[in-house]
């Protein structure tokens, strides 16, 4: 019936909107299955997860903070926030990017970067680590593990540079974030 689209009982539309990266901070009851509930919602509704960090933050009240970076159009990000807020064990959802702009909220990530090499490359790796203020947390005769804490972009840059001096593997924690100032996130 429709020239461009397959005959169907559904309307086919493609939506192409500007995508933004947003950091959400979600306070949840630390009960079994709560993480599955949150990320299951993302999977079920086709939302993206770029980064995810979860840990208990208050053992007395059994609260955990999920810090999650997602990518989508402003309206999709708003939908994500409302959908997550509706989950029963969720106390609070803050969209740090919406409140503070892309670089406003305090965001940090930790990465462990393993580099293998010898001779000049080994020296260069050490020099770069020093320049980035990365700590050397493990060393063998032909390898290092560097630990770097910082903004995601900085870590991305460091890893990119390491790739030319013998990068072997990387482990990253994902983003931890808080509001700046005296207010609760």
């Amino acid at each position: 019936m429709n020239d461009k689209n397959p005959a169907s009982t559904y309307d086919f539309v493609s939506i192409d909107e500007n995508k933004e990266r947003h950091t959400l901070s979600i306070i949840v009851d630390n009960e079994s299955g709560v993480l599955a509930r949150v990320i299951g919602l993302f999977a079920a509704r086709g939302f993206n997860i770029d980064s995810l960090t979860v840990s208990e933050i208050e053992s007395k009240n059994q609260l955990s903070r999920i810090t999650l970076v997602s990518c989508g159009s402003p309206s999709v990000i708003e939908k994500i926030k409302i959908q997550v807020e509706r989950l029963v064990p969720v106390h609070k959802v803050s969209d740090l990017t919406a409140e503070y702009g892309q670089y406003g909220a305090l965001e940090r990530e930790l990465a462990l970067i393993k580099v293998k090499g010898s001779g000049n490359k080994r020296l260069e790796a050490l020099r770069l680590a020093e320049a980035f203020d990365a700590q050397t947390v493990d060393a063998s005769l032909n390898s290092f593990i560097f630990q770097l804490t910082g903004r995601t972009r900085e870590i991305d840059r460091f890893i990119h540079l390491m790739s030319s001096v013998g990068l072997l593997e990387v482990s990253r924690t994902g983003i931890a974030a808080l509001k700046r100032g005296a207010e609760n996130t």
């Binding site: 309307d11 539309v13 309206s75 708003e78 939908k79 409302i82 959908q83 807020e85 509706r86």
Partner: peptide
């Protein structure tokens, strides 16, 4: 709604719902 971009093109729309996720979905 049928075709969403031709849905009631001339109207102002008011939505009353108990569920925030239904609004502007």
């Amino acid at each position: 709604t049928g075709k969403i971009d031709e849905f009631s093109p001339k109207s102002k729309k008011i939505h009353i719902d108990i569920d925030a996720t239904s609004i502007n979905k």
